[in-house]
């Protein structure tokens, strides 16, 4: 999918979670691990299709890229689709993080107390 320069790269919340999972997983990032990461850390149940829908949207926005792995025996010979962050994705994540950090700066104690 070609990068679409007209799309503003503001990130949805779920998109942020997925991108963060990619950062954490590095080369081990594919559908199952991304979902496991988000379920394990954010503690929310999600379907594998939701993960792929989001990853594909991120790919359309030019923020991540994907490649197909070799067939592995333990999944009935099915291949994996791996994902990794592109520089633009990293930038978008950084922007999102900075925005969040800027907005929360100095509020840590108050937020905890909420």
């Amino acid at each position: 999918m070609e990068h679409n320069p007209f799309v503003a790269s503001t990130l949805g919340e779920f998109e942020q979670l997925v991108l963060l999972a990619l950062v954490r997983l590095g080369p081990e990032a594919y559908g199952a691990t991304v979902r496991r990461e988000i379920e394990g850390r954010a503690g929310r149940q999600l379907s594998i299709s939701a993960v792929y829908t989001t990853l594909e949207r991120l790919e359309q926005k030019g923020l991540v890229r994907s490649w197909i792995g070799e067939p592995t025996p333990q999944r009935g010979g099915r291949r994996r689709k791996h994902f990794e962050l592109r520089p633009s994705g990293a930038r978008a994540l950084k922007v999102a993080y900075k925005t969040f950090a800027d907005m929360t700066a100095g509020l840590e104690r108050q937020l905890k107390a909420l």
């Binding site: 559908g31 199952a32 594909e56 333990q74 999944r75 009935g76 291949r79 994996r80 689709k81």
Partner: peptide, 14 residues
């Protein structure tokens, strides 16, 4: 996406 989605599901199931 069928191949990886089903593959991921099997992997998680196992």
């Amino acid at each position: 996406d069928r191949e990886w989605i089903v593959g991921d599901t099997i992997e998680e199931f196992e």
